[in-house]
Amino acid sequence: MKVNLMHGAGGEVMGELLRTITNLKNNNAGGIGLESLDDGAVIPINGQNIVFTTDSHVVSPIFFPGGDIGRIAVCGTINDLAMMGGRPIALSCGMIIPEGFEIADLERIVASMDAALGECGASLVTGDTKVLERSALDTIIVNTAGIGIVERPVRDNGLAIGDRIIVSGTLGDHGVAIMAHREGFEFGDQIRSDVSPLWSLVESAMAAGEIHAMKDPTRGGFANAINEMARKSGHGVVIEEESLPLRKSVRSAAGMLGIDPLEVANEGKVILGVKPEDAEAVLEAIRSHPYGRDAAIVGTVVEGSNVVMKTAIGGERFIEPPIGDPVPRVC
């Protein structure tokens, strides 16, 4: 069998690929390792917990409404650290650049990286650059890795029954924005990516109450992330459709194309499982952050094993992890 594009599309097919490439015996440095497939690893060193994560970024187009590949590359790593509860400290950056790439574009990308770093007080401290011939690569690839420190790591598997599920803002913005820009769809209102570094938002959320689990709904969107959180915790989740924050423009654009905004990527959102008593306080803390103004409590952790959405018309449906392209199923 050969790798195909579905293997990178997130969801269940990608899960198969992940099983192959994470098949390592040496996968844990003493804390949380590769085996848990969390947002990052945790390595206890001299009583301190170091969080460590890495991410490679390929975006087409590299500049899009609301951001660019540089901002995504920094935010991706910072957010993965933040999802473990880690304060981001230092990042590395590896760039693979195709021959013929505009230097001016590189300058824009780097400036954008710097701005994102500045927002959360982290630094890019080491790097590597390769230039490949045109025939071998047709787009820039930016890899970042980062370390942070955390006192008590937050996992993505810690949902407990009764926990309230909070999302930090509108869902689907990044995925729909990229898609619209790439394919040239004009939806009337311009849709902007939500790409942003979330550390300070997460920091204030953690200060406001007890958070049992966190995950950022990137590839595969909310649908993928909430299913993974439910599966890893061994519980079910009930989501109220009407409480899900969706931008009108995103809802309408997705509606016109027949795609589910819950299944497309976000780059500046976090899903939190919060102790019920603390949910309101955490929600308040998130809402008072500029990136969290549209945050909402969207659901509850229950016994069971599925993610079920109570729909606006009084029905229920499963929210399933997307498996690549949706296939029509209505008779």
């Binding site: 898609m179 394919e183 040239g184 769809f185 004009e186 939806f187 009337g188 654009a253 016109m256 194309l257 027949g258 795609i259 392209d325 949706p326 296939v327 029509p328 008779c331």
Partner: peptide, 24 residues
Amino acid sequence: EVELAVLEKQVAKRFNVAETSSTG
């Protein structure tokens, strides 16, 4: 016009477009 342009482009680009031989 917005809806029509999106539909037209969606079909032209085959974006989230399935193929069917359904009678229904």
